[in-house]
């Protein structure tokens, strides 16, 4: 039996995934990191990007997350995601529309708070499109 670590992917409205995986690559704020079994405990924030689940040395599943936090300990990797969608479920035109809307919001933003929000939305939209491309 191969060595596995438990991946838990949780969004605010549901526990999306809780299953043993061989390796998972998480897009941390300070760079991607791979989580293998018996990883040293750590907590990291996540930037908008793609979580890659490895099975048998190959990527078996790609899930887009719009940010969140990950907690890793030797047996499990818990990801609290704001929003999570399988990359295969992203629709190109919708992603493009979200990007255009985010750009428009940034233009229209008047307060610092709105600007910050719009910048975040723009980052998410860009990452979503990038996720589709590769």
């Amino acid at each position: 039996m191969t060595d596995t670590t438990v991946l838990e992917l949780v969004s605010p409205s549901a526990l999306l995934k809780s299953e043993p995986v061989e390796m998972v690559v998480v897009p941390g704020t300070d760079g991607n990191f791979g989580v293998l079994p018996r990883h040293a405990p750590m907590i990291s924030t996540i930037r908008p990007g793609v979580i890659e689940i490895y099975e048998g040395g190959k990527v078996s599943e790609r899930i887009f997350v719009a940010g969140g936090v990950a907690e890793v300990n030797p047996e499990r990797c818990t990801i609290l995601a704001e929003e999570a969608v399988a990359v295969s479920d992203i629709k190109a035109d919708e992603a493009q529309a979200a990007l255009v809307a985010a750009e428009a919001d940034l233009q229209a933003a008047s307060t610092a708070h709105e600007t910050a929000n719009a910048e975040h939305a723009l980052k998410v939209a860009r990452a979503r499109i990038a996720a589709l491309k590769n």
Binding site: G28, T29, D30, F33, A40, P41, M42, I43, S44, T45, V69
Partner: peptide, 10 residues
């Protein structure tokens, strides 16, 4: 736990 970035930032 290791923190990435810092505890305060998280």
């Amino acid at each position: 736990y290791e923190y990435e970035p810092s505890e305060e930032a998280i």
